[in-house]
Simulated scan of single mutants.
Amino acid sequence: MFRSAALLCPIAYLNRIQSILTKAAAQLHLVEELDSLGYSEFPPGWDILGPILEKICNEAGTNCSDIMTALTGPNCCVNTSKASVLLKHEPQPTATKNIIHLSQMIRTGTIAMYDYGSEDEKRKQYGNSSPPVHDMRNIPKELPLFLGYGGQDMLADVEDVKALLNDLKDHEEGELFQVYSEEYAHADFVLGVNASQVVYDPMISFLNLH
């Protein structure tokens, strides 16, 4: 189905995620609470999200004055005007179920299918009492992949990305391309003032080749 794939800040393993906001939300089961209240889209309005962020920040004991840094890591190369633009459009809405799924993987440290909770429902969905685990080694070895990741990213942690790369170590020679920037955090890949040279020029070269 794919000729190639370019992945920026690829989130697969979540064992070492450092984002205090994200980890706290997962551990507190806050999105599950929203789901139980009938919210099928995340994030809900700021009238709902604001108190949630306040609860997370108080629980985690972190300084949330800079929400983007607390969520993504210390971005080196996003200027103030670009950061304000990003925060007007982020986070992009998705299904609450999708965020619950991510929260489950943060808590368990596994890349698995959605956990429906009750054993009866899991057996109905999967024929098993636990959600099937995805094996990243099953990614086709001949599929050209481009991976960009940063040393300051608190969502796609370097060690988690390296765990994914370890699964891909048998990829065919010349079909796995990496761009690593020690100073980049998550948002730098989108709005970094030098992202064109650091990330997008090599990515476009990869896409032109594949």
Score class of each variant (00 low, 15 high):
1 M>G: 00
5 A>T: 05
6 A>Q: 05
7 L>Y: 06
9 C>Q: 07
12 A>V: 13
13 Y>A: 10
13 Y>G: 11
13 Y>C: 10
15 N>H: 13
16 R>S: 15
16 R>G: 07
18 Q>M: 12
19 S>P: 06
19 S>H: 03
22 T>A: 05
23 K>Q: 09
28 L>Y: 02
29 H>A: 08
29 H>C: 05
29 H>W: 07
30 L>C: 08
30 L>H: 01
33 E>I: 05
33 E>V: 11
34 L>C: 11
37 L>Q: 14
42 F>H: 02
43 P>V: 03
44 P>V: 04
44 P>Q: 15
47 D>V: 14
49 L>D: 08
49 L>E: 09
51 P>H: 11
51 P>V: 12
52 I>G: 03
52 I>Q: 03
53 L>N: 04
54 E>P: 00
56 I>Y: 01
59 E>D: 12
60 A>D: 01
65 S>R: 07
67 I>V: 14
67 I>P: 05
68 M>E: 11
68 M>I: 12
69 T>D: 13
69 T>R: 15
72 T>S: 14
73 G>V: 09
75 N>K: 02
76 C>S: 11
77 C>I: 11
80 T>I: 10
88 K>D: 11
88 K>M: 09
91 P>L: 10
93 P>G: 05
94 T>W: 09
94 T>G: 13
97 K>R: 15
98 N>P: 03
99 I>D: 00
100 I>K: 06
102 L>W: 06
103 S>P: 02
104 Q>M: 03
106 I>P: 02
107 R>H: 04
107 R>A: 01
109 G>Q: 05
109 G>A: 07
109 G>W: 09
109 G>N: 06
111 I>G: 05
111 I>V: 13
112 A>P: 06
112 A>M: 12
115 D>P: 09
115 D>H: 12
117 G>N: 11
119 E>Y: 09
120 D>H: 13
120 D>S: 13
122 K>N: 15
128 N>R: 15
130 S>K: 15
135 D>I: 07
138 N>W: 06
138 N>V: 13
139 I>E: 00
139 I>P: 00
140 P>L: 02
142 E>N: 15
142 E>W: 05
143 L>S: 01
144 P>Y: 02
145 L>R: 08
146 F>D: 08
146 F>K: 06
147 L>G: 12
148 G>R: 03
148 G>V: 08
148 G>I: 04
150 G>V: 08
153 D>Y: 10
155 L>G: 02
155 L>E: 04
156 A>V: 06
158 V>N: 03
159 E>L: 07
160 D>L: 00
162 K>I: 07
163 A>L: 15
166 N>W: 14
167 D>V: 08
171 H>T: 08
171 H>S: 09
172 E>L: 09
176 L>Q: 01
176 L>G: 01
177 F>W: 00
181 S>C: 13
182 E>W: 07
183 E>T: 12
184 Y>A: 10
187 A>Y: 08
189 F>K: 00
190 V>H: 03
191 L>S: 03
191 L>E: 01
192 G>T: 03
193 V>R: 13
193 V>K: 14
197 Q>H: 12
197 Q>Y: 10
197 Q>D: 08
199 V>I: 11
200 Y>C: 05
202 P>S: 12
202 P>A: 11
202 P>H: 10
206 F>G: 00
207 L>P: 01
210 H>V: 01
210 H>L: 01
